[in-house]
Design a protein around this nucleic acid. Sequence first.
DNA 1: CTGAAAGCGCTTACAG
DNA 2: CTGAAAGCGCTTACAG
Lengths: 327, 327
Amino acid sequence: MTIYDIARQVGVSASTVSRVINKRPGINAKTREKVEKALSESNFSINEAAKGLVNQSSRMIGILVSDIRNQHHIEGAYMIEQHFLEKGYCSLLFNAGSDKEGMAGYIKLLSSRRVDALVLIGSIFQNDEVMEAIGNYMPKVPVVMQNGILDLPNVSSVVSNDEQGAYDAVVHLYNKGKRNIAFINNNDTPSNLKKLAGYRKACSELGMKNREILRCEDSFSGGAAATDELVRMYPDVDAILYSVDTLAAGGVRLLIDKGFTIPDDIALFGTDNSPFALITNPRLSSVDTKLRELSNACADILSRAIEDRSYRKNIQIDCSLVLRETT
Amino acid sequence: MTIYDIARQVGVSASTVSRVINKRPGINAKTREKVEKALSESNFSINEAAKGLVNQSSRMIGILVSDIRNQHHIEGAYMIEQHFLEKGYCSLLFNAGSDKEGMAGYIKLLSSRRVDALVLIGSIFQNDEVMEAIGNYMPKVPVVMQNGILDLPNVSSVVSNDEQGAYDAVVHLYNKGKRNIAFINNNDTPSNLKKLAGYRKACSELGMKNREILRCEDSFSGGAAATDELVRMYPDVDAILYSVDTLAAGGVRLLIDKGFTIPDDIALFGTDNSPFALITNPRLSSVDTKLRELSNACADILSRAIEDRSYRKNIQIDCSLVLRETT
DNA sequence: CTGAAAGCGCTTACAG
DNA sequence: CTGAAAGCGCTTACAG
């Protein structure tokens, strides 16, 4: 079923059908009506691929996350998808994994789908392979990176102030009387490195020693294992800041099992203020990295950049502390 | 950059370039080499929309879930997406919400994108509006429904045996000495109705009274509130089966706060065996609804149906019980 | 207000 | 082994 079929049925030309479908002005009311009737009676559904071909716009946007199953990433992707859906864009959402060559592959894939814009969610995309792939395959497509920076003329950035967030968390713990504050990190993404920097800065300013575990598996059990290791290594630890809530949730669980009292023996701070923070027992205090604001900003920038190819903007949003029962 | 540009550059025709790109046999090795060189040097990326137009295949599949932020749904979508990615298909993943007209709208949307297949994840799609939309807009497209049934010639089904799962859970609780077993349900999707039926069947066979809360908000706090209501209504309750883990996680939390001992005072059973079951304290026993198996089966059926339009299959997979600390 | 024609970027049957 | 031409389903500038 094409517009030619409809045209034949009604006795007009395909041009006219096209105009009716696209609500162009300057069409006889009677004609319009007849065409609309035929359209709806035959359940006509326009072929967006053909339309996109002539319009030079797929009306699709690409969204890359490193792990679609990560609650935090998916929330961001969801907000952006919703935003663009209202404007008639479909989202091609991919799980780009953590392999850099793989990420580049997805960018090539999205380029073959001729997406009108690209969103990269997560600082993990801040690397040379991705940069090169964008330069090669999408040099003119508006790109916005959530939580990372890529120095390319068509790439905008929206980042949270991770350093300040971690810094504030440590200061808060210090003010609560904690003096042996540790940091547990899952991996060394640019974003986590900023958290680490904030942690170290606060420790140094407040005259405390660093107690760090810099790598662990990004899961509940990974967080539990790292916490276990930490309290063995530093028996005097009285507070822990985690790079993500997932780890902290595992930590809460482990410490309770080991008979620690939270927050009196050990206080805990997660990061991201994710839904997990509400189901741990006790409930988790967390650094809010402002996911909603970041996503909204991404969507706004991209909307503008699609209109005006030269539009580009970099913004940073401060984190806030959400205090619950673990501090 | 089109295949014509490449053709001109190399001094061959577009047909030849197309043949090289598609690795068709019967091309002079020298020619092939020259074309391949030009292709890679200019970072050529084929226009899939144009290709799809002539091939009458978008090489995209549509995936509808009712809430993309639901961990359980997204896991299923993820598995299916991965499966098809390997075969060169992109997924159009949408959040169809719980409004039936809205769902129909998404089906129309996916039809305009000419997806080669459609996956519906969740029994919530089992309704007349969806059925009509498929009949009108995708009458020949292979569709597979995860956890629901739609009586249409192009729709296959993969469902878990929710009734048996709930039944088994109740029997298990009975064998543990529980005699006042309640059921808390979030909503009346077809799938949840099957769980309810299994619960009632077991109660009736074992001579126990029904204690039910049939609707509550699908969230931790919704589960907590419903649990609170339940223990007020029926102070003698000694076990609760929840229709989803999310509710149970909220329930665990509430009961602990209220001073109940789990599982001695009240035993709890969730459903879905989701990651949440591992972070509650105590860890949650749960009915495993076999998400992985369901998703694999969906992908298999769809792969076949894309090849052979007449292929259709309905299967059911039994649930199993995963016992942890709440029972 | 309406239609014929060209063109978007591909593929493939046909001819050589 | 290779190319010219037609066609996939649309839109739009042009002419009337």
